[in-house]
């Protein structure tokens, strides 16, 4: 089965985009009349996460920088040729305190595709297939005010059991993963997700990112295409593209972004106003 995605945002003007993305993620009766937008939502989540975990704005910016380092190794990334520093992120235009312009994802035209088949058939059509070893999903909320876990510093309590289910189904654990393909769309969501992966104490993901562990060459390679912040936000295609990137990594086709000898990874996808999560564990072999 051929699975494809394509998205074109460039036909919209900046205002149409601002209006659309205000309404797309916000409740028309209870949020839009207050001037809510996706950026406002991510900014509130960032402010709360920082206030209640002690994560610094520099650490939040560090997620964007790590993503950019990966994107710089990707020939198809929107920002493949531009480097980024923490100072640049912090000094970019303030969009919604504490969120600066470079902490916001960038809309992009793009597409991707993959071929899906049974494990049995895979060997016949592909030399080095990648297997879906485990997967799990859960739904949290339509609006953040009704999220299953109410505290922004404890969102991992929603994400972690889902990741755990995917690990268990694969018969693997967090430390078996060679890559963590995390899609947050905004840096704070990536930190909340990272808190749930079983590789760091919850609330310490900012420090983990700051240490360089999630950047190229680090112990926990994370988001190896640079996702919505640096690869480009292709709407529903971001999670899709990251999934394809994961498959390419495990097939050894990731070029300059290749994580050496990658065998297993965990990938996540979600949508709406951070309403749900789906974790997938992929492998280029079936663990014995």
């Amino acid at each position: 089965m051929l699975v494809i995605h394509a998205q074109r945002f460039s036909q919209f003007s900046a205002n149409e985009q601002a209006a659309y993305f205000a309404h797309a993620g916000s409740d028309l009766e209870w949020e839009v009349p207050y001037g809510m937008t996706y950026n406002a939502l991510a900014a509130m989540m960032t402010q709360g996460y920082m206030a209640y975990t002690g994560t610094t704005l520099e650490q939040v910016a560090g997620v964007c920088v790590a993503c950019r380092k990966w994107a710089n190794r990707q020939p198809n990334a929107m920002f493949r040729d531009k480097t980024l520093t923490v100072e640049q992120v912090l000094n970019s235009r303030m969009v919604a305190y504490p969120l600066t312009a470079y902490m916001c994802n960038v809309l992009a035209d793009g597409g991707c595709a993959y071929v899906m088949t049974t494990a049995e058939n895979a060997k016949k059509v592909c030399k080095n297939p990648v297997y879906v070893l485990g997967e799990a999903s859960d739904y949290s909320h339509r609006s953040i005010i009704k999220s299953k876990v109410r505290d922004l510093d404890r969102m991992h309590e929603f994400y972690a059991p889902v990741a755990q289910k995917a690990y268990e189904q694969a018969g693997l654990g967090p430390e078996d993963m060679d890559i963590y393909e995390i899609y947050g769309a905004y840096p704070v969501v990536s930190l909340m997700m990272a808190d749930a992966l079983g590789i760091v104490e919850p609330g310490q993901s900012g420090a983990l990112v700051e240490s360089g562990a999630t950047s190229p060459g680090g112990k926990y390679p994370m988001t190896t295409n640079g996702e919505a912040m640096s690869f480009g936000h292709t709407g529903t295609g971001v999670g899709f593209a990251l999934f394809v990137e994961g498959v390419r990594q495990l097939q050894g086709k990731a070029g300059k972004a290749q994580v050496e000898d990658a065998r297993f990874l965990i990938d996540d996808c979600g949508g709406g106003a951070f309403m749900d999560v789906h974790f997938t564990v992929l492998g280029n072999q079936i663990p014995s």
């Binding site: 809510m36 937008t37 509130m44 960032t46 709360g48 969009v95 919604a96 305190y97 916001c104 953040i144």
Partner: peptide
């Protein structure tokens, strides 16, 4: 007040004249 954001740029036109404004949980 649980958490907040101070909106200052890139909002839909009906809110542009209100900038900066605070949205909050």
């Amino acid at each position: 007040l649980y958490a907040y954001a101070v909106n200052s740029y890139g909002v839909p036109l009906p809110f542009v004249e209100d900038l900066p404004y605070v949205t909050a949980l």
